[in-house]
């Protein structure tokens, strides 16, 4: 025999005591097993699905919000410009009236 065969022979498996299996089975009977839920029933699966749903829904929602804000800003700008225009017209009318009144008074 060569040395490696001697090693194999020396390291042959040993049997545990005769009552080993019975003791393990008795202990196992008092042990709770981990129940393997199907993938769709595992909490981790639900958490991942929720994460994906949030990831899928949030960007469009953010874009929609931004778009609405921009629309509102444009509306506000339009209203402001319109108000300025009205004010300018009124001011011009007032100035014209004042001018006419001053002319009459001078004459």
């Amino acid at each position: 025999m060569n040395f490696e065969d001697d090693l194999r022979a020396a390291l042959r498996r040993e049997q545990p005591p005769a009552d080993f299996a019975a003791r393990v089975l008795a202990k196992a009977a008092q042990t709770e097993r981990v129940v393997a839920f199907p993938v769709w029933r595992r909490p981790a699966t639900w958490a991942m699905a929720a994460g994906l749903a949030v990831a899928a829904l949030v960007p469009p929602a953010v874009l929609e919000y931004r778009h609405r804000e921009e629309q509102r800003a444009l509306e506000a700008k339009k209203e402001f410009l319109f108000a300025l225009q009205v004010t300018r017209t009124k001011l011009q009318q007032t100035r014209a009236r004042v001018h006419r009144a001053t002319m009459r008074h001078t004459l």
């Binding site: 545990p16 005591p17 080993f20 003791r23 393990v24 202990k27 196992a28 042990t31 709770e32 097993r33 981990v34 129940v35 393997a36």
Partner: peptide, 17 residues
């Protein structure tokens, strides 16, 4: 023996996987 028993019990808990 003790360690082997522990490993088998750990295995038993995971056997469904």
């Amino acid at each position: 023996e003790e360690l082997a028993q522990d490993v088998f019990l750990q295995f038993y808990r995971q056997i469904a996987r």
